[in-house]
Nucleic acid binder design. Structure first.
Length: 270
RNA sequence: GGCCGGGUAGCUCAGUCGGCAGAGCACACGCCUGAAAAGCGUGGGGUCGACGGAUCGACGCCGUCCCCGGCCA
């Protein structure tokens, strides 16, 4: 979400001062009305890494979105997309019994892919069918899969920071309160004056809830509360995603995660 | 004080003719290849306000009481 210009406070974007000390890439590279995607992120991030390495420097990939990280470091191939076909499939699954019918087709044309997607998950079923109909090839034939943790596309040292649950929850609540104090609501009001947010940008935690509160005349306290819960839920999914990756070295922090910095640097140097 | 409506999961509420206590959200656990800060699955949770009664059997029917909201005085 930090790729979007104007989404500063709620995405905890690095400050101008911080960026003056350490160059940050893929920050402020898209307008909030633009869509962002795993494929777009893969291309942009790999280009940034290549540029950094070409200058003899070392890239530090930071972030919590598992699919996006793997899209950069692993052999993930994203077959094309077709908006018309996508719309047709979306309409199909919106009909009564449509999701089950679509899942039947997926099971018939790509049993391996059907095995990995839940029969109720319309979004994933639609995407798999879109690829199959578009390319004529099985969805599962693209790349080794996200559960294959082989050698990375380029040398990468992966480190995860593990924080106790109660500390994490407290930090999330504190963080949102600080964002609100820093003017998050005003920032959202400013965004509402511009072009409508894209589908992807409008999902940003905090922004989505505050926009909802403003347009529906709801409670800002409730919006912040929902955003806090959604952040916890996101953190749980991050935990699930990264936990299964055997290449990650986990470092535990009891309170302040910054305490593990020396250990992170030691791992990095090796 | 009188009349009416309500009291069921942490929250908001369904519950048909009396026949095994339900949903959404929350919470916990988990899944994942162009929406991923997205999407999806599984699970734990109940003195059905309290007490008494009729009934083989009550969240439901009868009685008394308590609590909340509205209207009237």
């Amino acid at each position: 979400m930090q790729v979007y210009r104007g989404l500063d406070i709620g995405t905890a974007k690095p400050t101008v001062a911080e960026r003056a000390v350490v160059p940050h890439h893929l920050v402020d590279v898209a307008d909030p009305s633009e869509e962002w995607s795993a494929m777009r992120h893969q291309a942009a991030a790999r280009a940034a890494v290549a540029g950094i390495e070409a200058r003899g420097r070392r890239a530090l990939l930071v972030g919590g979105t598992g699919l996006y990280l793997q899209a950069v470091v692993d052999d993930l191939r994203f077959p094309g997309e077709d908006p018309d076909l996508r719309a047709e499939l979306d309409a199909w699954t919106a009909e009564p019994g449509g999701v089950a019918a679509a899942y039947d087709e997926l099971r018939r044309r790509d049993p391996d892919a059907a095995e990995k997607v839940d029969p109720h998950n319309a979004r994933r079923i639609v995407r798999a069918l879109e690829v199959i109909r578009l390319t004529g090839k099985r969805f599962s034939s693209f790349g080794p899969g996200i559960d294959q943790f082989g050698p990375t596309a380029f040398p990468v040292q992966m480190v995860g920071v593990w924080v106790p649950r109660d500390v994490l929850n407290a930090r999330i609540a504190t963080r949102f309160a600080a964002m609100r104090d820093a003017g998050l609501v005003d920032e959202v009001l400013g965004l509402l004056d511009g072009s409508p947010l894209s589908r992807t940008a409008s999902q940003a935690i905090g922004y989505k809830e505050i926009i909802g509160a403003i347009t529906d005349d709801g409670s800002l306290d409730d919006a912040i509360d929902t955003a806090v819960r959604r952040t916890r839920s996101f953190a749980r999914r991050q935990r699930m995603w990264f936990r299964r990756d055997p290449r990650i070295t986990w470092l535990g922090a009891t309170d302040n995660p910054c305490a593990v910095l020396p250990a992170v640097l030691a791992t990095w140097s090796s």
